[in-house]
Simulated assay, not measured.
Amino acid sequence: MARLTSAVLVGALTRRVHQQGGSAMVLARGDATAGAILVLALERGANPRFFERGVGPDGQPALIATGPRTLADDGEVTAYWQRRRSQDGDLWVVELDVAAAERFAAETICAG
Rank of each mutant, 00 (worst) to 15 (best):
L40E: 12
A24M: 03
L42I: 08
D58L: 01
L42V: 01
D90Q: 14
A32N: 09
V55T: 03
A105R: 15
P61Q: 08
R83E: 05
Q60I: 13
R85S: 02
T33V: 00
V94L: 07
Y80F: 10
G75I: 02
R103S: 13
P48K: 02
V39M: 04
T108V: 08
C110T: 15
G112E: 09
A100R: 14
A62H: 06
R16T: 12
R53L: 07
L38Q: 01
I64W: 01
P57H: 00
R84W: 08
L40R: 04
Q60C: 01
L38R: 10
V17Y: 04
D58V: 06
W92R: 06
A12L: 10
A32S: 15
V94H: 11
L42C: 12
C110K: 14
E76G: 11
G56R: 07
G112R: 06
A65H: 02
L42Q: 06
A2M: 06
P48S: 12
F50S: 02
V10C: 11
I37P: 04
L4M: 00
I37M: 07
V94M: 01
E52L: 00
R83T: 14
P61K: 00
T5M: 08
T33H: 05
V77M: 03
Y80P: 09
I64A: 07
T70H: 04
H18S: 14
L13Y: 10
S86L: 00
R16F: 02
P61V: 00
V94R: 13
Q20R: 04
T14V: 08
R85V: 05
D74K: 05
L4G: 05
I109A: 10
A28F: 00
L96R: 15
V8M: 09
A34Q: 09
A101Q: 14
Q82M: 03
E52H: 03
M1E: 12
A111G: 09
